[in-house]
């Protein structure tokens, strides 16, 4: 929480759990942000994000939201929101901080960016590890020399756009590549209008590890590999298309799972009595 505190960010987390369940959760994990209880799902309904796919008599599951996160500026205006179809997935702290204050986080894994004027891409993961279910961005960054440009996607015929491709593997969840907004550029020689990027250009690929949410066998390291392709041009000349492979390993942080779903001795077991609250929750919702 220190990074959030340092930036003066108010963090609120709300669920349909009863207050005492959240209090136990808070104590068990030394949570310092504000946990809020919405036991009748009124706030969830008012926000319009009740998971209506779950039948009202399907206890205790009915009442949960489509999980998601809103980020506001200091005027209370929503500037970003993050929702995922899979309720296991959620946005990571790195992206929440970035949403509020740009690249506030300095930690990274992989191939860090150096102060170079060469158009050489760097690939790295923001954060200290990859946490199961938490989406983080694999970043590919390139500094385009002044007077030159990269092609956005789609590139003109015969040229290639700046692209990051991650090799698929079964333990990885890979979402759609996020590209920066491109600029219209008129070629002096032909008058053709093309979409390009200048200066520092970043591609961001949301990824996470899926592991196995009820297993203790989450790997401790995961190898990431893939390819970057790019081509820089100026008004007259284009360099030949280039491709570069990258490969590095990232530590994996396992999922925190309810204790009644884990094996004895699992170091990720919760300190709170989850089964007690689960029974209470189920009983209250059935009455």
């Amino acid at each position: 929480m220190s990074a959030f505190d340092a930036l003066g960010i108010s963090v609120l987390a709300i669920s349909y759990d009863e207050p005492d369940a959240l209090k136990d959760f808070q104590d068990a994990y030394d949570i310092t942000y504000t946990l809020l209880s919405d036991p009748d799902s009124k706030v969830i309904r008012d926000y319009g994000i009740l998971n209506t796919l779950i039948a009202e008599d399907d206890h205790p599951w009915f009442g949960i939201p489509f999980p998601g996160t809103y980020v506001t500026d200091s005027q209370g205006t929503i500037t970003h929101k993050f929702f995922e179809n899979n309720l296991v997935l959620r946005v990571g702290p790195e992206e929440l901080l970035r949403a509020v204050d740009g690249d506030a986080l300095s930690e990274y894994i992989g191939n860090p960016v150096s102060d170079t004027t060469d158009a050489e891409p760097k690939v790295f993961l923001k954060g200290e590890h990859l946490a199961v279910g938490v989406l983080q961005h694999l970043v590919c960054q390139i500094d385009v020399p002044q007077g030159r440009h990269l092609y956005a996607d789609p590139a003109p015929q015969g040229m290639i756009p700046f692209t990051l491709t991650l090799d698929a593997q079964s333990k990885l969840v890979i979402r759609e590549l996020i590209r920066p907004a491109s600029e219209a550029h008129t070629m002096a020689s032909t008058g053709e209008i093309i979409q390009v990027n200048h200066g520092r250009v970043e591609l961001r690929l949301p990824i996470t590890a899926n592991g196995a949410i009820t297993s203790t066998t989450v790997p401790t390291m995961l190898d990431l590999s893939g390819e970057v392709s790019w081509q820089t041009c100026d008004e007259d000349v284009c360099d030949v298309p280039r491709r570069s492979r990258f490969e590095f390993s990232v530590p994996i942080e396992g999922a925190v799972v309810p204790e009644f779903m884990t094996k004895p001795g699992n170091p990720k077991v919760r300190a709170m009595d989850g089964m007690k609250h689960f029974k209470k929750m189920s009983s209250r919702r059935q009455s």
């Binding site: 959030f4 930036l7 003066g8 960010i9 108010s10 963090v11 609120l12 987390a13 709300i14 669920s15 349909y16 759990d17 369940a21 959240l22 959760f25 946990l35 969830i44 926000y47 994000i49 949960i64 939201p65 489509f66 999980p67 998601g68 996160t69 809103y70 980020v71 506001t72 500026d73 200091s74 209370g76 309720l87 959620r90 929440l96 509020v100 709170m272 609250h277 929750m281």
Partner: peptide
Amino acid sequence: PTIMLFFRSA
């Protein structure tokens, strides 16, 4: 600035 998370359950 506020971050408001709606999560499934603790």
